Computed example of a mutant assay.
Amino acid sequence: MKLSAVHHVAIIVSDIHSARDFYVNKLGFEIIRENYREQRKDWKLDLKVGDGAEAIELEIFAEPNPPGRVNRPEACGLRHLAFRVEDVEGAVAELAKCGIECEPIRYDEYTHKRMTFFFDPDGLPLELHE
C-alpha cells in the first residue's frame, strides 16, 4: 500500500455559525458543500484548503453539546492543525485585521522556519508555519 497524500482533516466544533464565520470569512477557505444531517442532528461543512494537487479538505462537524477540549495535560489525538504560509508575519497581520490574536512568532529550531499559533472559536490550536 502506498499512501499518497492527506485527503482531509476532520474537526468537531460547538457552533456551526461561529465556525463558518471563522474558517470561511476570516481564514478564507472555500465551501465545497454544507449539509444538515437530520439523522445525526448535526451540520457538516466541507472546506477546501489550498489549491491544485496539494489542496485538502477540512471537514467541520458541528455536534450538539460536544465535550470540551482538554488543554493540559493534553490528551492523545490531534494536537493542532498547521497551515503552510509563505510569510508568517504577513499572515499574522491579516489575522489581526480580523480580530484574531496570534502568539509571538518564534523560530522552529528543527525545521528552521518561523511559526506561530492562534486558536479557533472552540480553542483548537492552529499553527502558521513557513
Rank of each mutant, 00 (worst) to 15 (best):
R33S: 14
A19L: 01
E30D: 12
L27Q: 05
E57R: 13
M115D: 06
H8L: 03
E130F: 01
R33K: 15
V13H: 06
K26M: 09
D15W: 00
L95W: 04
A82C: 10
D15K: 00
K44F: 09
K113V: 11
G99N: 05
R20W: 02
S4F: 11
E109H: 13
D51Y: 11
L47V: 02
P73A: 11
L58M: 05
K41P: 03
D42L: 08
Y23N: 08
F117P: 09
D122L: 05
R33D: 13
L124E: 02
E38G: 12
C102F: 01
A75M: 11
H80Y: 01
I105E: 05
D21M: 09
F118P: 08
H80G: 06
K48E: 07
P121W: 00
G123W: 03
A10W: 01
E127N: 09
V6L: 14
G28K: 12
I12T: 08
F29R: 03
F61P: 00
P73G: 13
D120Q: 06
D120E: 07
H17R: 15
P121D: 00
K48L: 10
E57V: 10
R37D: 06
L47M: 03
E86A: 14
E34T: 05
A93L: 08
E63V: 09
Y110N: 15
A96E: 06
M115T: 12
C102K: 02
Y107A: 01
D122T: 04
R79A: 15
C102Y: 00
R79C: 13
E127G: 09
K113E: 12
P67G: 06
N25M: 02
A62S: 12
P125V: 01
Y107I: 05
E89D: 14
F118L: 07
A91E: 11
R84F: 08
L58N: 02
K113W: 07
K97D: 12
A93W: 03
H7A: 14
D42E: 09
D46Y: 08
L58Q: 02
D87Q: 10
A91F: 04
E57K: 14
L45Y: 00
P73H: 05
